[in-house]
């Protein structure tokens, strides 16, 4: 088990004894773990283990009752709001694909483009060639170049998931939180998505919450198992799969 006591110097995200309760129900109960820079991490666990709540806490949607979330060794995220956290360099992908359905694929990416998020900047914004090139690049990465002028609402489910990942790339975050990216995808789309995430993780840290064990296996990374709002086990997929308690509460015999 990893604990706070000996965390390495290159942590990008460090959750320290986070507790959250809703109307008496403890969603997170002293959750602690860390993610290193450039790491790809999978989080698994049964329903109600606190996976989504953990993401809510990191991205500022939910403020914990106690505990700290330290980002890049210097900022405590627990008192900041979503916009501030996003601008610090943390991106989030929802479980259900959420893109701006009445706008084109290109406009979706342009909205996500890293830069000044202020009112006046938006009012007088002009796209420069470098930015246009960056959008083209990401379109290529998420395989949507041919769909750039289509409305996002008209994309298939898998394409929407990719567009959302593309928007996260436009944000150029240091840390990316991805919630069940392959739910409802075909096998082929799932494989492509795994490829995409691995590519992305080369230059930044990625935390993926997932149920699909085959997909976790294809990510080939360190795995954290959550149970009842705390870390149950952590390690390579093989170690996890051999862990008695994990088998008992989650994987089943």
């Amino acid at each position: 088990m990893t604990t706070a006591a000996h965390r390495p110097d290159d942590t990008i995200l460090y959750l320290d004894a986070i507790s959250v309760s809703f109307d008496g129900f403890k969603a997170l109960d002293g959750l602690s773990f860390y993610v290193r820079r450039g790491e790809l991490r999978a989080i698994i666990g049964p329903n109600g283990a606190g996976k989504t709540t953990m993401m809510d806490v990191v991205t500022g949607k939910t403020h914990p009752d106690i505990g700290q979330v330290i980002f890049a060794d210097r900022v405590d995220l627990t008192r900041l709001d979503e916009a501030r956290i996003a601008n610090l360099g943390i991106g989030r992908k929802f479980q259900k694909p959420t893109v701006f359905e009445t706008q084109t694929v290109f406009d979706n990416l342009e909205l996500a483009l890293a830069g000044d998020r202020g009112l006046w900047a938006a009012l007088f914004f002009r796209l420069d060639p470098a930015q246009r090139q960056r959008i083209d690049q990401v379109l290529e990465t998420v395989r949507l170049t041919d769909h750039r002028h289509r409305l996002a609402g008209h994309l298939s489910h898998g394409q929407k998931q990719w567009l959302e990942i593309g928007m996260l790339l436009m944000q150029n975050p240091q840390l990316l939180l991805v919630d069940e990216p392959v739910a409802g995808m075909t096998d082929e789309e799932t494989q492509r998505t795994a490829q995409m995430l691995k590519e992305i993780a080369r230059s930044r840290s990625v935390v993926v919450v997932e149920h699909d064990m085959a997909f976790v296996k294809s990510l080939d990374c360190r795995v954290t198992v959550l149970h009842e709002g705390a870390v149950l086990a952590e390690g390579s997929l093989a170690t996890i799969q051999a862990n008695e308690r994990v088998i008992e509460v989650y994987l089943g015999r």
Binding site: F22, A27, T53, K61, T62, F94
Partner: peptide, 9 residues
Amino acid sequence: ALRGRAVEA
């Protein structure tokens, strides 16, 4: 109010 945990889109 009931506090929910679900993220609304």
